[in-house]
Design a protein around this nucleic acid. Structure first.
Length: 463
RNA sequence: GAGGUUGUAGCUCAGUUGGUUAGAGCAUCAGAUUGUGGUUCUGAGGGUCGAGGGUUCGAGACCCUUCAUCCUCCCCA
């Protein structure tokens, strides 16, 4: 007998953990629905060709490919061909439709784009959807990084209105307010980064600048300078970048200074205008009770290179927590163009469920009542008492009280220990005396107090 | 792709320069206790020391190979 284990980079979620995760997911779901987003689910596997070439060379290697089935019923000749191709596939980054033509979903964005293109005739655009599902990556796991993890996305496609940007900001604010996580939302525009590349005199280096700048938090300005040099940016250009990212003040002041710096780059001015309009829409929609701050941050880059407009990132704003971003998103033009549907602009946000979980744990901000499960357990005394217990059990459930009966007439001590371990709030003792009097003895497990009462009174207490 | 960590009971881990029959806590089961839990006491079961090879009179420990694991860098969420 081999010891049981689970695949590298996967996790079991125990009951308490599932409850806490569901609390996060339910909170987000309610908000998405409130803002008119519709739920979407796509299959765990996609056709391999749908995924390949969408995540870059590195990404292609990290896609979990699924071996074709039906090997046992192949004809001799086909099986030989299969084995030949399999050897090739195993030896290097090589794909063969003979061996694998499906793969596990790598993220939710590409399947979403695929869905939109396939259903373009039926969808009402702008299409607002949210999706919360696991994704898989054949990456080597490390702390906080798994081969199976959940993503939670909300996107709007088919509209270029900046109201969408403002609404997604509201969703972030509302969500983290409800979850009681203090946050700072950083906002920028890819157009400003494009303008920055122009200011450097190297507009074609925008991606290089973006990737380098994205590491500012991690490696500091000196590190970024070094990386920019390695990526072929001249010192004069680095000076320009330095000048732009070091502007200070509130959002209004920052945008004004930027305007001055970028008067000669139309794309920069447009980016500034978009940020300004988004923020103004936002202030019309925002609730005064939300605590999070929204801050224009020119150094915010976001690694993903399909973003083209406004980009955002959420970080936890608390001294007690050290954590990278817990959410991010932005506008992307033409994502569906990959599948032949051109001219559809989209904007979306993503919530980092695992990190949000960790933050809530560190802040000790999960609601206390999540810990307890079923409310009450009935002790099983066997025989006639068991029959009585079953009738009480049914009546409790009919009244909407979460209850369970210990299934065996085991020793009393054992049953009580079980109830204790399960963290039951109450225990009901349906024994001889209770059965004869048609009453129940209800014991409060926290206080130890016990009373013999009618079932009606009992239900009233437990509801 | 590069580097490092750890593999001993179901779980978490001790195990001295290589030396008799490999230990503890938790968990499980039984008993003190057949209607009163959280903290008690007693006892029991449970091990091819990750796998394979080597050195040695003798290996859980040393060497080689291999597998697994966790972590760091790269990259990413």
């Amino acid at each position: 007998m081999s010891k049981p284990s689970i695949p590298q980079g996967t996790r079991d979620f125990s009951p308490v953990v599932v409850r806490k995760r569901q609390y996060i997911l339910n909170t987000l779901r309610d908000i998405f629905e409130l803002y008119g987003f519709q739920p979407l689910e796509t299959p765990a596997m996609e056709n391999l060709v749908t995924l390949t070439g969408k995540y870059g060379e590195e990404g292609d290697r990290l896609i979990f490919k699924i071996l074709n089935n039906g090997l046992h019923e192949m004809k001799e000749e086909k099986r030989n061909k299969f084995n030949e191709e399999l050897t090739k596939v195993m030896s290097k980054a090589y794909s063969s439709p003979v061996v694998t033509e499906r793969a596990l979903r790598y993220d939710l964005t590409i399947p979403f784009a695929r869905y939109v293109v396939m259903n373009q005739n039926d969808l009402a655009f702008p299409f607002r959807r949210y999706q919360m599902q696991p994704v898989w990556r054949a990456d080597s796991p490390q702390a906080g990084r798994y081969r199976e993890f959940w993503q939670c996305d909300a996107d709007v496609v088919g509209s270029t209105s900046l109201i969408n940007e403002a609404e997604l900001l509201c969703i972030y604010q509302s969500a983290f307010h409800q979850l009681q996580i203090p946050v700072k939302i950083k906002i920028n525009s890819r157009k400003l980064l494009a303008a920055l590349a122009e200011l450097c005199g190297t507009p074609e280096k925008m991606i290089d600048i973006t990737v380098a700048l994205d590491k500012l938090d991690k490696i500091g300005w000196d590190g970024v300078t070094k990386e920019l040099r390695e990526r072929g940016i001249e010192d004069a250009g680095i000076d320009q970048i330095s000048k732009v990212i070091s502007i200070t003040g509130d959002n209004q002041a920052k945008l004004e200074q930027l305007t001055a710096l970028m008067t000669n780059t139309p794309i920069g001015l447009q980016g500034i205008k978009e940020l300004s309009i988004s923020l103004s829409y936002y202030s019309g929609l925002a609730d005064a009770g939300w605590g999070g701050t929204i801050e224009v941050d020119i150094s915010l880059a976001r690694g993903l290179n399909y973003y083209t407009g406004v980009i955002v990132e959420v970080v936890c704003d608390s001294d007690k927590v050290k954590m990278g971003s817990i959410g991010g998103g932005g506008r992307y033009d033409d994502l569906t163009g990959l599948f032949g549907l051109k001219g559809l602009s989209g904007v979306g946000v993503s919530f980092g469920i695992d990190r949000i979980y960790d933050v809530l744990e560190q802040l000790d901000a999960f609601p206390a009542q999540l810990a307890s499960g079923a409310k009450v357990m009935l002790v099983n005394f066997g025989g006639d008492n068991e029959r009585y217990a079953i009738s009480v059990l049914k009546q409790l459930r009919d009244a909407g009280v979460a209850a369970e009966l210990y299934p065996d007439a085991a020793k009393f001590d054992k049953q009580m220990k079980y109830a204790n371990k399960r963290a039951m709030a109450y225990v009901i003792l349906p024994g001889d005396e209770e059965r004869e009097k048609h009453l129940v003895s209800l014991k409060n497990f926290a206080t130890g107090a016990q009373q013999m009462i009618t079932l009606e009174e009992c239900v009233k207490l437990l509801k």
